[in-house]
Design a protein around this nucleic acid. Structure first.
Ligand code: MN
Ligand code: MN
Ligand code: ZN
Ligand code: ZN
Lengths: 150, 150
DNA sequence: GGGTTGTTTGGAACAGTTCCAAACTATTGA
DNA sequence: TCAATAGTTTGGAACTGTTCCAAACAACCC
């Protein structure tokens, strides 16, 4: 069933391995394990604590300091990016494309907004001697009042 | 020079006083002083530390705990609102209208984007059973490279 | 293998914010 | 006007998320 390109069964870390190599980061046991969690499952948005708990629950023993180191190194080398949605908690995003987010205030989860599903018209001019580094749109959601009964 | 409506000279706290009364907050010395700093100077975006320092530099003696209490109470009663732009630091905004922000990453300052200077077209549908509580647009700015010499 | 350099780690330190209980103050209504 | 009451302020302790540190460890390169 494996096509020649599907190396995930026999070489489960090859995806992450290449990413690390490209970023100039040594493929340590910890980085490989975390990279696998992060990159092998589509777009993910995690906090340090969440990733730490997830690793722990899968038997991967990594210190919280290493979680922070890794998320920051992945971010610095362009493998991930940071999303700011709540004070006092950093989210890290495996989707590095230009895109925006739904933020579920109830459970603190993030979801990508398909990049063609939102558009800014009439961007204001950036003030003199400043340039736009990035534009973030956060659509904050709360649980809807259930008024479809009846 | 004073019109009948300009009570700022002889009753410098009347603006804040009415706001506090409307919000059901007792007009204490601290709240009046902070309200004056916040509301008598157009739209402002402050962190707790900033407001504390500003008060201090004007001889207003208020504890940091009271700064936090006051900003939170003002926010809860709709006199201000919170803006999330950086992890680990809360900004409070005296402009409670629906609007967006420029964020100067260099010095951490915020500036309102005139509400007609930006528009979202093609808002994505909020997922089932969730509703949009608020939409925040943050335009992150950095100092422009000065390449107009020559 | 051995030397070197980069990485991981637990724990201490740090920053921003909230909590606490005691002192204080605005309000109320006799 | 003056308690009694309820709400507010305060310094310091506690708490949370994150970074820093120095020692142990692991990857890399000869
Ligand atoms: Mn960071
Ligand atoms: Mn708050
Ligand atoms: Zn995303
Ligand atoms: Zn604003």
């Amino acid at each position: 069933m494996n096509t020649p390109l599907d190396t995930s069964r026999d070489r489960p870390f090859s995806q992450t391995l290449r990413r690390l190599k490209d970023a100039g980061l040594r493929p340590t046991r910890q980085r490989l394990a975390l990279g696998k969690l992060l990159f092998d499952a589509g777009d993910r948005h995690v906090t340090a604590e969440q990733l730490h708990a997830e690793a722990g629950s899968k038997g991967i023993k990594v210190s919280l300091a290493t979680i922070y180191n890794t998320l920051n190194q992945f971010t610095e080398s362009g493998l991930m990016r940071e999303v700011v949605v709540a004070p006092g908690r950093s989210y890290y995003d495996t989707n590095t494309e230009d895109h925006h987010h739904f933020f579920y205030e109830d459970d603190g989860s993030l979801k990508d907004i398909p990049h063609d599903a939102i558009a800014l018209s009439a961007m204001p001019d950036a003030p003199e001697d400043a340039e736009v580094a990035r534009v973030d749109v956060i659509v904050r959601l709360c649980r809807a009042v259930d008024n479809q009964s009846q």
